[in-house]
């Protein structure tokens, strides 16, 4: 069975949440959503996610806090910050806190998928840091053209290695 990349999307904007979940599911991702930081952390404890997409500005816990909490509990989880805030400094700050990358809203879906691919790659690189042969394959997969096809290859590599 093909491994499905599991995504956790956290945003206080429910319409946005619904729409992006719909679109990513159509593209083969396993998507779960949370409307705030507390729900997100609870959800992450119930099931394992590969990548979390976090909104930066949220009532209650903000993206930074959720990020720190998630990274603490899940070593291999990669996080991508989605933010409408134009400030670059907070993004840099969050990268230091362990976020893989950040995307300013609104973004192109292709750009998001590209970033998801990179994040997933990073996750695998970490996971199989010692395995040179797998590393080579991962690098070879990077030569392919479409981000989606690369993802497919990577999923195969990741299969069963959670």
């Amino acid at each position: 069975m093909e491994h499905v990349i599991k995504l956790l999307i956290v945003d206080d904007e429910s319409r946005f949440l619904d729409a992006i979940a719909t679109r990513l599911r159509k593209r083969g991702f396993d998507v779960k959503t949370a409307g705030n930081g507390v729900d997100a952390i609870a959800l992450a404890r119930q099931e394992k996610f590969d990548i979390a997409l976090l909104d930066l500005k949220m009532p209650g816990m903000d993206g930074g806090e959720v990020l720190q909490s998630l990274k603490q509990e899940h070593r291999f989880l990669e996080a991508i910050i989605l933010t409408g805030h134009g400030s670059l400094e907070s993004a840099v700050q969050l990268t230091k806190l362990g976020a893989f990358s950040y995307l300013p809203k609104p973004y192109e879906l292709d750009k998001l998928i590209e970033t998801l691919k990179d994040a997933y790659e990073a996750r695998l690189r970490k996971k199989f840091a010692a395995d040179e042969a797998r590393m080579q394959k991962i690098l070879a997969a990077g030569q392919a053209e479409s981000p989606l096809s690369i993802l497919r290859t990577l999923r195969e590599l990741d299969d069963g290695e959670r």
């Binding site: 729409a19 409408g84 809203k105 879906l109």
Partner: peptide
């Protein structure tokens, strides 16, 4: 800077909704 956030969020909603329709 604050307003950018306020505007970008609905823009993101629009982008996603349009994306759903395109899909």
């Amino acid at each position: 800077a604050g307003i950018a956030h306020e505007i970008n969020n609905p823009l993101a909603v629009i982008a996603e909704e349009v994306g759903v329709l395109k899909d």
